[in-house]
């Protein structure tokens, strides 16, 4: 991680998508214990993972973590709170008129 530069990391990950009646969820776990910091970007590689209704799909994939530079990390930490309204979106849609 540089002060001004971003770095790219590859990490194997396990993706679990549940499209079941009992549970709708989707999670990514980094197999090597990599930790995400403010401002980092994550992209799971490969085609879209779809779980048919009623099934849980688990796949081993490669993820790219684009590490934020130190300055970006500080910036995200300092300004992230401004986006806090997102947290208040409990049952809301973006559209003003439907």
């Amino acid at each position: 991680m540089g002060f001004f530069t971003r770095t790219k990391e590859h990490t194997p990950c396990t993706v679990e998508i549940s499209h079941k009646f009992e549970s709708l969820h989707a999670h990514v776990r980094f197999n090597n214990g990599a930790v995400i910091h403010p401002g980092d970007e994550v992209q799971v590689q490969g085609p879209e993972i779809m779980a048919p209704f009623g099934e849980i799909v688990t796949e081993e994939r490669d993820a790219i973590i684009l590490r934020a530079s130190t300055i970006e990390r500080l910036w995200t930490k300092a300004t992230g709170d401004l986006e806090v309204m997102e947290l208040c979106e409990f049952s809301f849609s973006e559209e003003v008129t439907l």
């Binding site: 995400i36 992209q43 799971v44 879209e48 993972i49 986006e83 947290l87």
Partner: peptide, 21 residues
């Protein structure tokens, strides 16, 4: 139909202080 394909899209992690959460 709800599509859970967002995982393979690039996503950025925003930071919030615990108290705001």
């Amino acid at each position: 139909a709800v599509n859970l394909g967002f995982l393979t899209q690039k996503k950025k992690y925003t930071y919030f202080r615990p108290k705001f959460i």
